[in-house]
């Protein structure tokens, strides 16, 4: 190619780039203006903590029936679909055997009662979450204000790195449009779309209006929720006075869900 033509093309390219910068700068200026006028704040009733934590008193649950209302409450208000195909299953909170919930912790001969009893499992809202480390877009993140590990469904690209990273199998993926499989839609809460990952959000939307998580509210006192770093909190009181375990503690993720066995 002849060199003057090349030069002209280069100049054209550069000026196009230059022109495209201006709207961006304008946008920044406008945003600053808008911030000056309107304000954003927390709700007055919102509950706050340094790190939300949950204590599950496993002694209070004997069978699946005892857990059903909790799971039902959660899945109902969060529009969690019921998919028949096991591969497409979506769950935020569910139960499993002791040796599945706590692999490596089950002794060869276990108390009959522990072996038979189901155990509640959900996202641990780890203090050092590997899923957050793995996410390439910060679509899953640890909220600085209260330590909840949250999903931004608008941003998730569906790469499922977080699912590989989670040692607790807490995450589900929308393998298809979930809407047709939601029996009764809670109109206050959004559904999800196909192609994004979802999981328990510790009921961030309820905490914002001063309510405890749905499973805790439905548990009749068997689940306790509170601030892990407030020495006077109810969860700390329970941890202090009972022997508690956490799932896969050796991995160093620091789960925030404690179990009284």
């Amino acid at each position: 190619m002849d060199s003057s033509r090349r030069r002209v093309l280069q100049l054209l390219g550069l000026s196009a780039l230059g022109l495209s910068v201006k709207p961006v700068l304008n946008a920044f200026a406008e945003e600053a203006e808008q911030q000056a006028q309107a304000q954003i704040k927390r709700g007055e009733n919102a509950l706050s903590a340094q790190q939300w934590a949950m204590v599950v008193d496993t002694r209070a649950f004997e069978s699946e029936d005892d857990f059903a209302p909790l799971i039902e409450a959660c899945h109902k208000i969060h529009n969690v679909p019921v998919l028949e195909n096991k591969r497409h299953e979506i769950k935020w909170i569910w139960t499993d055997h002791f040796h599945n919930a706590f692999p490596g912790k089950a002794a060869r001969f276990l108390s009959e009662e522990v072996e038979k009893r189901p155990f509640l499992v959900l996202c641990n809202h780890c203090e050092n979450p590997p899923c957050v480390r793995a996410c390439p877009t910060k679509a899953t993140f640890k909220r600085e204000s209260d330590g909840i590990v949250l999903m931004d469904f608008h941003r998730c690209i569906g790469c499922r790195f977080c699912m590989a990273a989670c040692p607790f199998g807490a995450r589900s993926f929308n393998f298809r449009d979930p809407r047709p499989f939601i029996k009764e839609t809670n109109k206050q809460f959004p559904t999800r779309m196909k192609g994004v990952v979802e999981k328990c959000n510790f009921c961030a939307e309820r905490l914002a209006v001063g309510q405890l998580p749905a499973c805790v509210a439905a548990s009749d006192g068997a689940l306790t929720f509170g601030d892990l770093y407030d020495p006077a909190s109810e969860v700390r009181e329970l941890i202090r006075t009972n022997f508690t375990i956490r799932r896969k503690q050796t991995l160093g993720t620091e789960p925030s869900v404690y179990y009284i066995v």
Partner: peptide
């Protein structure tokens, strides 16, 4: 292969819009 594996491929540029150096996938791209 990465693109066909994504659940929301049209959002793939989020990887550059919200660069996340602690994610290995970011470095891989």
């Amino acid at each position: 292969f990465i693109l066909v594996d994504l659940g929301q491929p049209m959002r793939v540029f989020n990887v550059f819009l919200y660069p996340t150096p602690n994610s290995v996938l970011f470095w891989d791209t």
